[in-house]
Design a protein around this nucleic acid. Structure first.
Lengths: 231, 231
DNA sequence: AATATAATGTGTATAAATTACACTAAGTTA
DNA sequence: TAACTTAGTGTAATTTATACACATTATATT
């Protein structure tokens, strides 16, 4: 059992679709490539899996090396294996996604010289990405769009404390439609997984909204049932 | 770009979780292995992807070679990449699933000598499978269990004509719970994707049930909307 | 201090979907 | 023709989803 990536036989890679929300806009984490092919293009953070690491571990390592981000929980969502997806040979890639809150603090600093830089880019007006990454991104976006209808993944994107308006706005961005404010609040509060805090927004013009936080305990109870068809 | 599978560098394979329903019992398609490792063990049909074929094509080819089945629409559901999942080296495997009606006519005849035989096995009382195939099977089963709650995949498992009792039974097997007959029928008929036929069961003891068929057109309309959060 | 501004926060009536629950009808077998 | 077995049906109560508009509050402006 030898490793020989240089020969570019059959190899596999990881690509990461990392969503971030800054309270207003949904963004995606990109790198600018520093190597051919697609030198200088924007691309998803991704690289080759080593012989001795699991896919999940590889995903973590690769994201770190290309962006400096650590301890991000990612989940696999699809594997792309068209024969010609990589111009230099046969590479299948396992795509992962994750969702993050953007506090602004998160510095992005590639460790590897493979990426010139890493940066957040709005998901709207995305230019064409390297390889089949546009397609991978799209599928990842559809994945979270579906997922948000049955799991409260939105909470991973929001800061610890958030207002109901922020929460609603995030749903609207992901689902790409307007929601009714009263119905939205009713539904969210009915889940019973939100805790209202004795705290309000500060520094905003006009009336400050209450902060809420997500109650992970109650969530676990509620969404463990899941698969329900009724009786 | 050379192919060198013998060296067992980094290679990838496909494994297929094929569900079949004979009207009573949910079954899965297995092979008996004819080669080491795990010679004589039961395993999912699976083999190595060639350098020049896409994953989807490979899945089709491999299923055919190991079981003789053709033209089965399969969908990828997860990729398994633990370092030690294959005793002979690093193999990641892309798992596909599909669902079939078992008419009894479908002959299973491996073309490849890699499988001694191919056969349908009840999903209950499954013995331990080769490699990590038990785990792959379980994940595939969870996949269809989830999917059946939002898509009428059950129709792929049933014969062209089927009774409502058969349909309900299939749901019960997949969801692993009893459903109320009246509510089930009400719900199914309300979807408007079933057409009642002027035909009844024959050759059954006791009262014969009406046959229904699935209306693919109406289905397409209904389930294209999908992703709904309401207004 | 008064006013304008901009977002927060709230209720109700209607419709639709889900749940719980039990008996009669029809065809087959003995 | 009686016994058996499965098919087939309705209704009331509850829960969930939808449509829709205005008063409240904090800040900014004059």
């Amino acid at each position: 059992m030898e490793t020989n990536f240089v020969k570019f036989d059959s190899i596999f890679s990881i690509d990461c679709v990392i969503f971030g929300f800054d309270g207003t806009e949904l963004k995606i984490l990109l790198i600018e490539r520093n190597e051919d092919p697609f030198k200088d293009w924007y691309a998803l953070p991704g690289y080759i899996v080593e012989q001795n690491e699991s896919l999940d571990n590889a995903a973590e390592r690769i994201l770190y090396e290309l962006t400096g981000l650590r301890d991000i929980y990612m989940e696999q969502f699809h594997t792309f294996g068209e024969v010609d997806r990589h111009p230099k040979g046969r590479v299948i890639t396992v795509a992962y996604y994750a969702m993050l809150r953007l506090n602004g603090q998160k510095e992005l600093e590639p460790i590897s010289s493979y990426a010139k830089k890493a940066f957040w880019h709005p998901v709207s007006q995305l230019r064409k990405l390297a390889f089949d990454h546009t397609q991978i991104f799209t599928r990842g976006f559809l994945k979270i769009r579906r997922k948000i209808t049955y799991q409260p993944i939105a909470f991973e994107l929001l800061p610890e404390k958030f207002t109901l308006t922020q929460l609603q706005h995030l749903y609207e961005v992901i689902l790409d439609k307007k929601l009714d404010k009263r119905n939205f609040r009713k539904k969210m509060l009915n889940y019973g997984i939100l805790k209202e805090l004795n705290e309000k927004q500060k520094g905003v013009s006009y009336r400050a909204a209450s902060y809420y936080k997500f109650d992970r305990r109650k969530y676990a109870k509620l969404f463990q049932k899941e698969l329900s068809f009724g009786k």
